[in-house]
Design a protein around this nucleic acid. Structure first.
Lengths: 130, 130, 130, 130
DNA sequence: GTGGTCTAGACCACT
DNA sequence: GTGGTCTAGACCACC
């Protein structure tokens, strides 16, 4: 899977990494148990600092999306992804609220918004069976 | 309309302000043409610095959600809210993508997600007629 | 001649007034010797403060574009407009420089720019004979 | 490139900075991709506050003339300057109109004005090939 | 080291 | 009293 970094984005690089890896997992491009590049090689490929990659991986591990094995490397969580806990759902709502509020301000209907959400969902999800 | 700030949150204060004001507009609690508190009074009420409020107001003005009238005060945009431009829709997608990707990872179905989105949308929007 | 004010503009109201009156003189809509509205009536018509109109008129008088006669009122300078002094030409250059610099940045050619300038000039000036 | 500030001028310092940097870009003294001084070092060199420099840089970034890279620094836009959009051309006209009106009032002919514009344009632009 | 955020306090132009 | 500008000084995240 190809990761790419936008250096002029406002989002920190480590966040861009975590988001892209999660998108890889969501889309099935990254399968459970599959190996991720080592910190060193990924940092080298992207031309960024080791610490930055390490931070991204550590966060993903804390959330339960990957496993980091000393000496063996980094793999996508093979033992089932983390659950949708109530805490997660609450956080999700807080993330969605301002986005939806802005959409309403700009006159976007619920139907339009549902289409956008479905397109993104299916755009990611339908790869999963491959 | 009551605005509240979470000083502990990692989201910048000025972002919390812009988001809450946009939610106020979306929900109709803030009507077009309605006056917003002056920079100084809002800063005083919230116990924050006037520059922080100023930054929030300036961003909202740049996006077209409010008007800032020098020497007179600040009002909610009376001449129609900004449109849902292609640039806006693209930005919206980029905001939604990581949220939806994470939802997929955690096994949330499209139907569940649509319910969440609808609840938030209607929770904000249905106040509009009041 | 119709004057109009943009309350949400960043340019101070008195500047908007002086500019519009100068445009009126440039275009011949305001003829030398012609009466301008009194401070009081203009302020009333535009819904702005007396001091604001007064400031605009005072500036125009200082520059030599109008005459203010106590009790008689305000008239467009009948005794010849102010000259293009070296100081004026220098100030003009300083005003034009940033505008032209930005035009160059955006790839506007000298020919294009000349067309813009000519259009504005003739758009104002050709009314003069009427 | 040398930047200089006139503290006595009534034009805000941050405006002087943005104008000078745009002139530098227009004249080719600042090349695309070239690094600009860091906020702190420029503020130090000019003897002004870092927030003032920050404001100037932020405005130039919003217009698309520079890129601000968090943690790394500021560079002149390497991916092509912003286009001359219709909105830009309209803004330009509004900026030019009062200047040209005043020129007409003072009896400056179109030909004289064109010479002034050409001199400034070429004075900036002809450095570009060097 | 960088830019981003926030505070505190000041002066100004304008209404 | 309003927003606009500027200063001085601080802490933070990131690299």
């Amino acid at each position: 899977m190809m990761l790419h970094i936008d250096l002029q984005s406002e989002t920190p690089i480590y966040t861009q990494l975590t988001e892209q890896i999660m998108e890889g997992i969501a889309s099935g491009q990254l399968q459970p148990g599959e190996a991720l590049p080592s910190i060193r090689s990924l940092a080298g490929d992207l031309g960024i600092n080791l610490h930055t990659v390490n931070k991204a991986y550590t966060l993903l591990k804390q959330e339960g999306y990957i496993q980091i094995h000393r000496y063996k490397g980094v793999i996508v969580q093979p033992d089932g992804m983390p659950e949708a806990t109530p805490a997660f759902r609450e956080r999700q709502k807080q993330q969605l609220k301002p986005i939806i509020a802005e959409a309403i301000c700009r006159g976007i209907t619920l139907e339009e918004l549902q289409v956008v959400v479905r397109d993104i969902y299916e755009g990611l999800h339908t790869l999963k069976g491959e």
